[in-house]
């Protein structure tokens, strides 16, 4: 067994997780190995700058612009890079399109791989044992947990993110959204609809999450 220890070094730190983080941060800061201001900057980035609003803009544009959508589905990386949506945990993007006959859903059964530049930090449920364990075996059961029920003619394709490729679901454009501009369309695109555990909202519903 490689690097298996009966006495992992982490056990030396306080067992309370908040104190464990604090202890490690204090030690590393004292030695000059981390800069607390850099930590603040990382947190601010994912709390305030990078999040599902990025992905929603991409989806809204794909709904509005057929040439953009075709390019996005054919080879997402250059299209997204041009919009500035490139970076850590989004280096190799594939966008998969929902249709009346195929619904796509994304999971990472082995850890928590997720397209950070487009969706930010994954929600707790995406990282939960229940989602990781069940999404591949019973996606329809998981969708029911989200209040989503698919018709029998719609097949489910679950993407298990086992490599550094990250997947974004392009949800179906909802009925009644024909007259909306890109900004209004983006409001219909929830985070979960781009993971595949929700559908895009209808114009009279507004986005949920």
């Amino acid at each position: 067994m490689p690097h298996d220890h009966s006495d992992h070094p982490h056990a030396v730190l306080p067992s309370d997780p908040a104190l464990r983080v604090k202890a490690l941060e204090t030690i590393l800061t004292r030695k000059g190995l981390i800069d607390p201001a850099a930590l603040d900057e990382i947190i601010d980035t994912y709390q305030n700058k990078i999040g599902p609003q990025n992905g929603a803009r991409v989806v809204a544009r794909a709904w509005s612009d057929p040439a953009f959508k075709a390019a996005l589905l054919a080879d997402a990386d250059p299209v997204l890079a041009e919009l500035g949506y490139y970076g850590r945990q989004g280096e190799h993007m594939v966008v998969v399109e929902n249709t009346p006959t195929q619904h796509n859903m994304v999971v990472c059964t082995l850890c928590s791989c997720y397209p950070w530049p487009l969706l930010g930090i994954p929600p707790g449920w995406y990282k939960s044992d229940a989602y990781r364990a069940r999404a591949v075996r019973e996606p329809r059961g998981v969708l029911a947990d989200f209040g989503v029920s698919l018709p029998a003619e719609t097949a489910v394709r679950v993407w298990d993110s086992t490599a550094e490729v990250r997947y974004l679901v392009l949800p179906m454009r909802p009925a009644g959204s024909e007259d909306l501009d890109e900004d209004a369309l983006a409001d219909l695109v929830s985070r979960d609809s781009m993971i595949g555990t929700a559908l895009a909202s209808k114009p009279d519903e507004g986005a949920l999450t």
């Binding site: 604090k22 981390i34 939960s128 229940a130």
Partner: peptide, 28 residues
């Protein structure tokens, strides 16, 4: 593992401060 528990629409990105610090320390 039981049901998946979706979060609420206004759930914070980091449930507590130490989650954010743990992520940031790891990346740094």
């Amino acid at each position: 593992d039981g049901p998946v528990m979706p979060d609420s629409p206004d759930a914070p990105i980091f449930a507590t401060d130490w989650h954010a610090r743990a992520l940031a320390v790891t990346l740094a």
